[in-house]
Amino acid sequence: MDESLRAFLEALDYDGEPFGMFYTDQEPPSGFAPKPGPALSMELEQSGAINWQEVWGSFSCVIGSIWLARKKNTAAYFEAARYGCMGGSFYLGFHQPQLDFITHYVSTGIPGTQVHGERYLRSPETVRRFFTEIAPRPAPKRFCVFKPLSQFAPGETPETVTFFGRAEVLSGLVFLASFVTDDFEAVMSPFGAGCSYLTSWPLHYLGQGRLKAVLGGFDPSERKFLKTDEMTFTVPYEMYGRFLERWPDSYLRTDTWQGVRKKIARSRDAWGEQAGQGDGKD
């Protein structure tokens, strides 16, 4: 691990290692990837050509794959043919626009069928508006890869960096985002699927010329792939670089933060964890 990152994580009292996300045409030599699934597109859906049984048979959650990667300290990666989840395929930029089926699945379901809906938004129309507004960027290369920062090779640069943590660690990251940007609204927390917080939303803000951190982990469907009380905190690579450069001038060196570190230790004790076991499951 890079010494500047190591020093920052020690000051933050972050147990584990952040994950970086990037796109590449080179398949990772190891890691977790979903099983191949059938092609997805609005045209295929409208023509009735999607094999839904195959879609669900190859289903796996993006955050679930990342959870496995965290436990094994390796990569999780995806491509258009191995997307795992219809939502994840959209958020990671492998197909657009999103399928009409998903607008019903996320909201009210489909009357007269076994698709009862997640009830996360109140109507299919609202879901469609959400998909239009978030408008994920098309995948620029074949693979979308998430892996620990220490495993990035020379010439590989993450677009986003994600921290996984509970409230005390998050308090350090949230305030640091404002410290390094002079932006009082440096942290956003919009509606979205778990993987959208790690990809679509930070890239969405960057596309608007806004350097924003994204606090996530609120999707009820992803909670089983996070530790109890754990959330995600994702920053663009530029903000991550500012973290490494500017944290020594921040409150992370003050007595106030040392008091917070005592609570971090108590949190580990409460969940039966020890330093260095931050990827263990509750």
Rank of each mutant, 00 (worst) to 15 (best):
69 A>Q: 12
2 D>G: 00
216 G>N: 06
221 S>P: 00
2 D>W: 01
31 G>T: 05
134 I>H: 02
84 G>K: 07
14 Y>D: 10
230 E>F: 11
53 Q>N: 11
205 Y>G: 07
152 F>V: 09
72 K>D: 06
125 E>S: 12
153 A>R: 05
255 D>V: 11
101 F>C: 05
162 T>Y: 09
194 G>I: 12
52 W>Q: 13
92 L>I: 14
139 A>F: 00
87 G>P: 00
61 C>R: 07
71 K>Y: 08
112 G>R: 04
120 Y>L: 15
272 G>K: 09
196 S>Y: 00
84 G>T: 04
143 F>W: 06
156 E>M: 13
185 E>C: 05
54 E>C: 02
86 M>E: 05
215 L>C: 11
20 G>M: 15
10 E>N: 14
142 R>N: 09
247 W>T: 08
47 S>Y: 06
131 F>L: 14
93 G>H: 06
77 Y>E: 12
30 S>M: 02
135 A>W: 04
136 P>E: 00
272 G>D: 14
222 E>S: 14
271 W>H: 13
106 V>E: 05
115 V>G: 08
217 G>K: 03
10 E>H: 15
42 M>Y: 11
238 E>G: 06
218 F>H: 02
149 L>N: 10
85 C>D: 07
165 G>E: 04
21 M>P: 04
170 L>C: 03
103 T>F: 05
183 D>Y: 07
53 Q>S: 10
14 Y>G: 04
174 V>G: 11
88 G>Y: 05
266 R>L: 06
112 G>P: 03
31 G>Y: 08
78 F>T: 10
28 P>M: 04
34 P>E: 09
197 Y>S: 01
144 C>S: 12
239 M>G: 11
4 S>T: 15
69 A>T: 07
10 E>Y: 10
118 E>G: 02
197 Y>I: 00
33 A>E: 03
244 L>E: 05
148 P>L: 06
204 H>Y: 15
82 R>N: 03
75 A>Q: 03
251 Y>T: 03
78 F>G: 10
143 F>E: 06
244 L>Q: 07
174 V>F: 09
105 Y>K: 05
101 F>K: 03
36 P>I: 08
256 T>D: 13
233 F>P: 01
282 D>I: 08
80 A>M: 12
225 F>S: 14
174 V>D: 07
180 V>Q: 03
135 A>I: 00
198 L>W: 01
